[in-house]
Nucleic acid binder design. Structure first.
Length: 286
DNA sequence: CCGTTAACCTGAGAGC
DNA sequence: TGCTCTCAGGTTAACG
């Protein structure tokens, strides 16, 4: 269930482990992920060197030495685990979820010389996608909105995109064609910092608020990366977890708690806005 | 084109 | 203990 910061952390640990390494073997036990796995998935990956490990928005990208790319989206419950052959020890690279993984949800195993990585995904909303070449990769990412941290996300872009938009700002922040990389946790946190009500309609967002949105969306995402992402729900079970942004939440999962702004007597409201839970201060956010 | 809703899945936790 | 219900960090097809 990762957003940009969590995917970034997975990328960093994955890169350290598999970049410049050769894929020896691939074993797939379930091809039915969000999208059916490529017919020749194993063949395409086997005996290839991983030249690059990248991340764009919420996607992981493995660049192979045959000019192909493997894009990975973790969906809501996808995690990547590392199994060391010699130590027979399982390390969860996606530490935002419990390291205990029921084997029945291990769908893909990628073997390197003395370790393997395992893709585990109970809900199977995640997917692996093969991209032919660099041009196709660029095309793929042109279809989604600018990444929250990119320079393409600027005042001019937001101003233009907000004209006549009747969607509320919470939904717009979650819309990957509007801005990519933000999910439910961070959209709530960003709007809290901006003091904008999640239900505020796009075209009613003022210039001053656009500036705040730009500043705080980049600020929150960068801060979350710095804290190693958010480890929620199972995080208490994870020893040695470095993801600690959940301790910095102002609104997410803080229903009925006091607003953390000094002097504000507001409390945090939980409300469903378009099927996603929204958390906001009933006084601060207008 | 735009906006909304339901759907895709499984498992954890709450309430009874 | 066990049943039923709701909810979960995401996306997208289908519809009006």
């Amino acid at each position: 269930m990762p957003e940009l910061p969590e995917v970034e952390i997975v990328k960093q640990s994955l890169k350290k482990k598999i970049q410049h390494k050769k894929i020896k073997k691939v074993i797939v036990s379930n091809r039915n992920l969000r999208f059916k796995l490529h017919k020749n998935f194993e063949k395409i990956l086997e005996n290839r060197f991983v030249k690059k490990v990248l991340r764009k928005s919420k996607y992981l990208i493995l660049g192979l030495d045959n000019s192909k790319y493997c894009i990975i989206h973790l969906g809501m419950s996808g995690t990547i685990h590392l199994m060391d052959k010699t130590k027979n020890k399982n390390t969860n690279l996606s530490f935002y979820q419990s390291p205990i993984l029921p084997k029945k949800h291990n769908h893909i195993e990628i073997f390197f010389s003395n370790f393997k990585i395992i893709y585990n995904d109970p809900r199977r909303f995640g997917y692996f996608f093969i991209i032919k070449n660099k041009l196709e990769l660029e095309k793929f990412f042109l279809k989604i909105g600018p990444e929250v941290l990119s320079k393409k996300l600027n005042f001019k872009y937001l101003k233009k995109k907000l004209i006549n938009r009747k969607k509320n700002i919470k939904n717009l922040l979650l819309d990957q064609n509007f801005i990519s990389g933000i999910g439910n946790i961070y959209s709530n946190e960003i709007l809290f910092y901006c003091k904008i009500h999640p239900n505020k309609i796009g075209f009613k967002i003022t210039n001053k608020e656009i500036k705040k949105l730009l500043y705080f969306s980049k600020f929150v995402i960068k801060k979350a990366i710095k804290y190693g992402g958010s480890s929620i729900r199972d995080f208490k079970n994870i020893k040695g977890s470095i993801g600690s942004f959940q301790l910095e939440f102002n609104v997410y999962d803080r229903e009925n708690k006091k607003c953390l702004i000094k002097g504000c007597n507001g409390k945090i409201i939980k409300k469903f806005i378009s099927n996603r839970s929204s958390f906001f201060c009933n006084i601060c956010q207008k």
